[in-house]
Amino acid sequence: MSGNRIAKLSLQLMTIIEERSVNNLSAIPKEEYLYKCTSACAGCSSSLCLRYVLKAAGPDSVLVVPACCTSVIQGMYPGTAMNVPVYNIAFAAAAACASGMSDAFATLGRETNVIVYAGDGGTVDIGIQALSGAFERGTNFLYICYDNEAYGNTGMQRSGSTPLGARTTTTPGGKPTAKKDLDRIVEAHNPPYMATACSAYPLDLYKKVKKALSIEGPKFIHILAPCPPGWRYPTEKTVEMGKLAVKTAQWILYEREFGKLTINGPSKAAMKKPAPLEDYIKSQGRFKNLSPEIFDLMRQQVEQNIQRLSREEAGVC
């Protein structure tokens, strides 16, 4: 067994031990890398997520941020709300910039984590070429897409990640096409680790970031990040909205490690007996006046996703 392989296995073992020890929020480090009083909107779930991402990653980490809400949330020069270096880069360029940075650190013998924190527009649309290239090249980095299902920074225009039927400022009658299935695109690159997460489940997210950063190569985490002004729900409902997305199986929490799929706890129950999709749809202004036909299509999509992932987990696909 090569030295590399032993190192990798021992790292994985350490991660498993650590995972078992971190089973409630109180076990998450107290250090803050995202300070208070950012310019995020009230009820912003993506900044909640970023807080846990950075707690998991620790201080020897760099965030690479393309144009997105986080470009604004981090604060204005000369101030910064972050306690790790943040490298801002053009909209389409995050994964490529991270690629160069990761190689530079490798050249210098530094083990600094390189983490892209990008919105859905910068990931599924304008940034997808660079993302695909970096994954195909086996870049050693973690790419996190926080997905609020529209271009939030510019005031909620539709993105490729906007779901069917959702109203945005550029789909005032509701989006006529389905959400782009980013995870299946990433999966086609066979990364060693990929996962979904949701802002309403911070412990799950924390563990996934920890695990991802223990693995060499390109890692991907796709976080559903409910957005009060964009989805049109009251700010205090942000956590509830994330939980509803998972409980209705509209959003399924899973990990795929070296190709092996594991459905995570909260979604296991939801996939067996999903909560009524109406609960999720009716609580958001963006789905106002949704036609019954569109609603049926959405329900069918949920069912298809459940079946596809269940089959994959059971090894029947």
Binding site: Q74, Y77, T80, M82, V84, P85
Partner: peptide
């Protein structure tokens, strides 16, 4: 830790 190229 610094912000590189933030809003200015």
């Amino acid at each position: 830790p610094c912000g590189y190229g933030p809003m200015t």
